[in-house]
């Protein structure tokens, strides 16, 4: 529908919408996060859900303890290699459509523990992360901003056509392989369908 006609109609008291818009409005306004935290970022996540920052303003206050009832996984904190298979398994158990926010330096890259022996260098090696939040830990406002970014992303999703989201496509993976424990590292060390190492060319000594 033409935007001018639509604004004219709304001035006359006629509200028009599309099924897609209505559907996405409903989805983005009731994103239910999975109730789990891995480290100190989880404390900021809890603060964001409390009265001062009040994540309920965005419809995301219903933290579900079961992955079967959750839409959004907030990976809040350091993902150790011992914990990573469980995180992937929890994500596999969530119903579609589902989203991932990687919160904090550790979840997006390993953070200060990147060179350590037991820390995963970012959960995006195994899961399709929608929004990355930098910070150590990020402020609750940063989490709210990430949620708003995710809402914009959901609102822009098409239900049909070639740009439809993964959950509406048959060729996209329905679940992600759970890494196995190896003698020194996880096997495989990353999921090549989700993540490839960045091509970096160093130009200085």
């Amino acid at each position: 529908m033409d935007e001018g006609l639509r604004s004219e109609l709304s001035k006359q008291g006629v509200f028009t919408t599309t099924l897609e818009e209505l559907y996405n409005w409903g989805r983005r306004s009731s994103v239910w996060p999975l109730n789990f935290g891995l480290a100190c970022c989880a404390i900021e996540m809890i603060a964001a859900s409390m009265a001062r920052f009040d994540i309920a303003r965005f419809g995301a206050e219903v933290f579900r303890p079961s992955p079967r009832q959750a839409d959004l996984m907030i990976v809040a904190g350091t993902v150790t290699k011992k914990m990573a298979p469980q995180v992937v398994r929890l994500f596999n158990q969530m119903p579609e459509p589902k989203y991932v926010i990687a919160m904090g330096a550790c979840a997006i890259s390993g953070g200060p523990f990147k060179q350590g022996y037991n820390v995963l260098k970012g959960i995006d090696r195994y899961l399709p992360v929608d929004v990355h939040i930098p910070g150590c830990p990020p402020r609750p406002e940063a989490l709210l901003h990430a949620l708003m970014t995710l809402q914009q992303k959901i609102a822009a999703q098409r239900l049909t056509g070639p740009e439809r989201p993964p959950h509406a496509r048959d060729d996209a993976p329905a679940e992600f392989p759970v890494p196995q424990y190896g003698p020194y590292d996880l096997n495989p060390p990353h999921n090549p369908e989700v993540w490839q190492p960045a091509a970096v060319v160093r130009d200085e000594a």
Binding site: T80, K81, K82, Y117, N118, Y181, G182, P183, Y184
Partner: peptide
């Protein structure tokens, strides 16, 4: 802290 299959002592 490490998983059971891990070898060596970090």
């Amino acid at each position: 802290l490490m998983w059971d299959e891990f070898q060596d002592h970090p």
